[in-house]
Amino acid sequence: MHFPRLLPLITALALVVAVAAFAARAGAQPTSPLARGITAKPVDNTLPKELEGIGIEDRPGAELPRDVLMRDQDGREVRLGDYLTPGKPVVVVLAYYQCPMLCSMVLNGVLNAMKETAWTAGKEYRMLVVSFDPRDTVELARQKRETYVSAYGRDVGDRAFDFVVGDEANVRRLADAVGFGYRWDEATEQYAHAAGAFVVTPEGKLSRTLYGVAFPESTLRLALVEAGQGTIGTTLDRVILFCFHYDPKEGGYVVATWRLMRAGGAVTVLLLGGLLLRFWRRERSGIREAS
């Protein structure tokens, strides 16, 4: 038995577990002013009137209405369910095509992440942009699609990277399902809305909400792996996903210390169990030889 050779490995694993436990305890320490014994002023959490009803409410697992009726950039009547196919998660962005700034920032952020990942829209996943402005036309959708597909620079097939329009009632059902709030502002004659993208499973359930206007390639890739539930990505991608979880506050995937602790503890137990079993067998063999 080569116990001395295995001792450094066991020590290293134990150190990993200890570090993970320390990180978990450190992350659990209260950081608020009241917890530190500092008197804090009461915080007014009331939203300004201008911001009411335009946030994004995280609703993981929400069922999307498959029968939402829309028209694509070619004028064809489509339903949301037409974009849900086995093995292909869907990235959904709610935007409007005459938006002066924010919608373009979100679309550009998603496009940049799409260009950086090796996966291609239409092959491993689908990309769907839905206008929530009933004034948007099929022609505007076609122009937007031409612009972004050209910038994407890859061949995309049918219903791989679509821009669609719909009436208020249908689009509102989709927006409510994913928790996307928006409203018309008479003063500016524009829509007030939040910024984000939604990653949907092939079965039509909301898997992950990505907030903001910038989306690192790693965030989009892991969100697609998570939504694909084993149908997309490599074994390494799934191992990485196990070690990370999405944190809305950070706007990305962060180390899941409790998973590392559990995995490290399991590996340590297995190694120690294996060593004890070998030691026990060696002892029994020695006893038999002696007798």
Rank of each mutant, 00 (worst) to 15 (best):
F161Y: 11
R36Y: 03
G153S: 13
M261N: 00
Y191S: 05
Y97E: 08
Y152W: 12
V90L: 14
T46D: 13
T137G: 03
A141D: 07
V16Y: 05
V78R: 04
C99F: 01
P216H: 05
R126T: 05
L174F: 06
P33V: 09
E57G: 07
P89M: 06
A113K: 00
R288K: 07
Q29D: 09
K41N: 10
T219I: 01
I38F: 10
A20V: 13
P60S: 14
S285E: 10
Q190G: 04
N112I: 06
L84R: 01
R71Q: 12
E77C: 06
A23E: 15
M101V: 15
A151W: 11
V106G: 03
I287E: 10
R262Y: 00
A21T: 15
V254Q: 04
L102D: 14
R221I: 05
F242L: 14
R278D: 09
T268Q: 11
T85R: 06
G264S: 04
D136R: 01
P48E: 14
A62Q: 05
L275G: 03
R71E: 06
A21G: 15
R142C: 07
L6T: 03
M114V: 08
C103Q: 07
L64Y: 02
E77G: 07
R238E: 14
T31M: 10
H245K: 12
L15Y: 06
T31C: 05
V129K: 05
D58K: 04
P8N: 08
K205Q: 10
G264T: 06
V164A: 13
L275Q: 12
P248S: 10
T147K: 02
Y148F: 15
G55Y: 07
L260I: 13
A20S: 15
G166V: 03
V225C: 07
G153V: 12
T201L: 14
A187M: 08
R281D: 02
A263P: 00
A95Q: 08
D133Q: 08
V255I: 13
L272H: 10
R126D: 02
R173L: 08
E217D: 11
K249N: 08
I54T: 13
G233P: 01
A256L: 04
M261F: 03
R173H: 08
L47K: 12
K144P: 06
T85Y: 00
D167A: 12
A62G: 07
P248N: 09
V164K: 02
G274Y: 11
D237Y: 12
A290R: 09
V149C: 12
S285D: 06
R79Y: 04
V199M: 13
C243A: 15
A290T: 00
